[in-house]
Write a protein that binds this DNA or RNA. Structure first.
Lengths: 195, 195
DNA sequence: CAGATGACAAAATTTGAAATCTGTCAGTCA
DNA sequence: TGACTGACAGATTTCAAATTTTGTCATCTG
């Protein structure tokens, strides 16, 4: 069988995601990934030192897709209130979409993120960093009255945990969740807008 | 062996909690509970129709201990802001204490609450009910400017999920968690205080 | 010689037979 | 008579043997 393309890390990650979707996190093996790629499992180990490293890389790739999407909101138009509101909405919508469109894959990544707390902490730091930029902007224009923008940004992130933490995904399809989200956002924005 | 006391539902629940603490939720059996009580397992089934009912009852008992504690804050002294702040602090402190003092039992109840979502929903409704009383009080005295107090109360509860939902218990022993809690409370109270 | 292979040891997972547990109920005991 | 027992069937869990997987590396191949 002629190799249809050279074996790259990215190609391995694509196939790994596919295998994870079909077999779930507990039963997806490196051998499965290699078989799907039409190579020996030794070849996969040339690109990723351990199975854990492969799982971490594929999970990081998944988390980064959200981070990139949200970066566009930070760099986009609007005042700080509108941006903050849009950023939180976009985060919630992105998570709900992931959970709703491919529940199998979402469940898989929920397990993986549960196991990779260092990676998740890093991801959260990136997201809070984006929020900090928005809060700083609001502080600069006098729209928000806050202390340390980084601290405030983390408070906003923490207060909306129910709408982005996968452990609460069961809530995301409940009646009235949109209204609850709106209510929390409104409360936080009111708290931010004045000192 | 003379029965040291008549077999009551409460006595069974006490022993069940003990067995759960020692064996964990997966390995605690009705036979274990009966053995500990010095009776046959049939006698336990006289008081609880199924093992699931026993688990539910013992979990409800555990949740109710928190509800009762917090009811005292609602009925206590202070204006609405102080009470809200104290209620949230008390809830957070109670959860942290449970998690820190007896990690084994806390882990057990975390698993049980994860399995008994109807019971947990009921518990949450009770807690939000208490918060609603405080928000209503604030609205009546003009301290808070809100729409529907029940909706606002739920928003406050949701926004503090990280500090009371056992799925976030891993955060409760992190550096700076107290400050984060204070920051979220401050943000929410500022949002409540004016319309 | 750079990249890929597959045999191999150690670790982890699956399997299925044996043991235990759940829930019932006819019967015992005080 | 009403609380309690213990034998029982079916469901579930356990445990050890068999299989599979992980990770390495000497060897192969283009």
């Amino acid at each position: 069988m002629a190799p249809s393309a050279p074996l790259t890390a990215e190609r391995i990650l694509e196939v790994t995601e596919d295998v994870l979707r079909r077999h779930g996190p507990a039963k997806a093996t490196v051998v499965d990934v290699a078989r799907e790629l039409g190579v020996s499992h030794g070849s996969v180990y040339r690109h990723f030192r351990t199975k854990a490293a492969l799982r971490e890389a594929v999970t990081k790739r998944w988390l980064d897709r959200t981070t990139e999407r949200l970066a566009q909101v930070v760099d986009g138009p609007g005042d700080a209130s509108a941006k903050l509101r849009r950023w939180l909405s976009e985060l919630f919508a992105a998570k709900r979409r992931k959970a709703g469109d491919d529940p199998q894959l979402f469940a898989t990544y929920s397990v993986l993120t549960g196991e990779l707390s260092d990676l998740v902490d890093q991801h959260i730091d990136e997201l809070v960093g984006q929020l900090t930029v928005i809060v700083e902007e609001g502080a600069r224009t006098g729209e928000f009255a806050t202390g340390d923008p980084a601290v405030t940004a983390r408070a906003v992130f923490v207060a909306t945990a129910l709408f982005h933490d996968p452990r609460h995904a069961g809530m995301w399809s409940r009646e009235g969740i949109e209204e609850q989200f709106g209510e929390v956002c409104a409360l936080l924005l009111r708290g931010l807008r004045q000192g």
